Deep mutational scan, measured.
Amino acid sequence: RSLKHLCRLKIRKCMGRLHLRCPVFMSFLPLPNRLKAYVLY
């Protein structure tokens, strides 16, 4: 697996499933929209 994929998995694990599904939580993250979309992919 690529480093990019492993990073996405780690971020998702740290955030938890409930936060990933909450659009309000995701909108408050201080991340560029492209990065938010990548994490959610």
Rank of each mutant, 00 (worst) to 15 (best):
L3K: 02
P32K: 06
L20G: 08
P30T: 14
G16F: 07
V39T: 06
I11E: 00
G16C: 05
Y38K: 03
Y38R: 03
P32H: 03
R12C: 05
C7Y: 04
C7R: 00
R21K: 09
R1A: 03
S27R: 11
P23S: 14
Y38Q: 03
L3G: 01
M26A: 08
S2Q: 10
K13E: 13
L18A: 02
R34L: 01
R34Y: 07
L31W: 06
K13R: 11
H19E: 05
I11R: 00
L29C: 05
A37V: 03
R34P: 02
Y41V: 15
F25S: 08
L31D: 05
R34K: 07
R1V: 08
L20T: 11
M15H: 01
S2L: 12
Y41H: 12
L3V: 02
K10L: 15
M15Y: 01
C14E: 09
L18D: 02
C22G: 04
C22T: 07
K10C: 06
R8Q: 09
C22L: 14
C22F: 11
K10M: 15
L40E: 10
F28W: 13
R21A: 08
R34Q: 03
L31S: 07
P32M: 13
S2I: 14
Y41N: 09
C22I: 13
L6D: 13
P30C: 13
L9K: 06
N33H: 12
K13C: 06
L35R: 00
C14G: 08
K13M: 08
R21F: 08
G16K: 12
M26D: 10
L18E: 01
L29E: 01
P30W: 12
K4R: 07
A37L: 03
L18G: 00
Y38E: 02
N33D: 11
S27P: 03
R17F: 15
R17A: 15
R1K: 08
L40S: 08
K13W: 07
I11C: 00
L31F: 04
L31G: 05
R17I: 06
L31E: 00
F25I: 14
C14Q: 11
L35N: 01
L40C: 06
K13V: 05
I11G: 01
A37G: 05
C7I: 13
L31H: 03
S27I: 00
F25V: 11
K10G: 09
M26G: 11
L29A: 04
P23L: 15
F25T: 05
A37S: 07
C14K: 07
C7M: 14
C14D: 10
N33W: 02
L18P: 02
C14A: 14
R8Y: 14
P30H: 13
C22A: 08
M15F: 07
V39R: 00
K10W: 14
L9R: 06
M15K: 01
R21M: 12
K36Y: 04
F28V: 07
C14W: 15
L35I: 06
L40D: 08
H19S: 07
F28N: 10
L3W: 10
L18W: 09
L35C: 07
P32C: 14
R12P: 06
L40Q: 06
C22H: 09
L35W: 11
M15Q: 02
P32S: 04
N33M: 01
I11D: 05
V24C: 14
L31V: 08
C22R: 05
V39L: 08
N33E: 13
K4N: 04
K10A: 15
L29V: 04
Y38M: 03
C14M: 14
L18S: 01
V24F: 15
R1G: 09
P32N: 04
H5S: 11
K13I: 08
R8H: 04
G16R: 12
V24E: 15
F28M: 07
C22E: 03
R8T: 10
P23V: 15
L18T: 02
K36N: 00
P32I: 10
C22P: 08
N33R: 11
C22S: 05
L29F: 03
P32Y: 13
K4V: 07
S2G: 13
F28D: 09
L3P: 00
L3S: 00
R8V: 11
I11L: 08
L6K: 10
K13T: 07
V24S: 14
F25D: 13
L40V: 07
L35Q: 00
L6W: 15
F28H: 13
P23M: 14
P32D: 00
P23F: 11
C7W: 12
L29I: 09
V24R: 15
R21P: 04
Y41G: 15
L6E: 13
H19R: 10
L9Q: 13
N33I: 03
G16T: 12
K10E: 06
M26L: 11
L29S: 05
P32W: 15
V24G: 14
V39G: 01
F25R: 07
R1W: 11
K4A: 11
M26W: 12
L20Y: 01
L29Y: 02
F28K: 13
L6V: 06
C14S: 07
R21C: 05
C7E: 04
R17H: 12
C7D: 03
K10H: 02
K4L: 13
R1E: 09
C7L: 15
I11V: 07
K10P: 04
N33K: 06
V39Q: 00
F28P: 04
L40G: 04
V39P: 00
P23A: 14
C14V: 15
L40A: 08
R34V: 03
R34G: 05
C14H: 04
R17W: 15
K10T: 11
P30G: 14
M26H: 12
M15I: 12
R17K: 11
K4P: 06
M26T: 10
S27Q: 08
M15G: 04
K4W: 11
M26P: 10
C22D: 00
H5E: 10
I11A: 02
C22Y: 07
V39S: 01
L20K: 12
G16Q: 15
P23R: 15
Y38G: 02
Y38F: 03
N33S: 12
F25W: 11
G16V: 08
V24L: 08
H19F: 08
R8W: 15
R34W: 10
K36S: 01
L20W: 05
L9E: 14
L6T: 09
R21N: 12
G16H: 10
L9A: 10
G16S: 13
P32G: 06
V39W: 03
K36P: 01
L9T: 12
L35A: 03
V24T: 13
R12T: 06
K10Q: 08
H19P: 04
R1N: 12
P30D: 14
L18C: 05
Y38H: 02
L9M: 11
L29G: 04
R12M: 12
F28E: 14
S2R: 07
L6G: 05
P32A: 11
L3R: 01
R1L: 12
V39A: 04
Y38L: 04
F25K: 12
L20Q: 08
L18N: 00
L29H: 00
R1M: 15
M26Y: 06
L29D: 03
K4D: 00
L31Q: 01
P30F: 06
S2M: 15
K13L: 05
L31C: 02
L29Q: 02
H5M: 11
L3H: 00
C14L: 15
K36A: 03
C22K: 02
V24M: 06
P23G: 13
H19A: 13
F25M: 09
L3A: 00
P30Y: 09
R12D: 09
F25C: 03
V39K: 00
K4C: 07
P23E: 15
K4G: 07
L35E: 00
L20N: 01
S27G: 08
Y38S: 03
V24W: 13
S27K: 11
L6C: 13
P30I: 06
L6A: 12
S2T: 06
K36T: 03
I11W: 10
G16A: 14
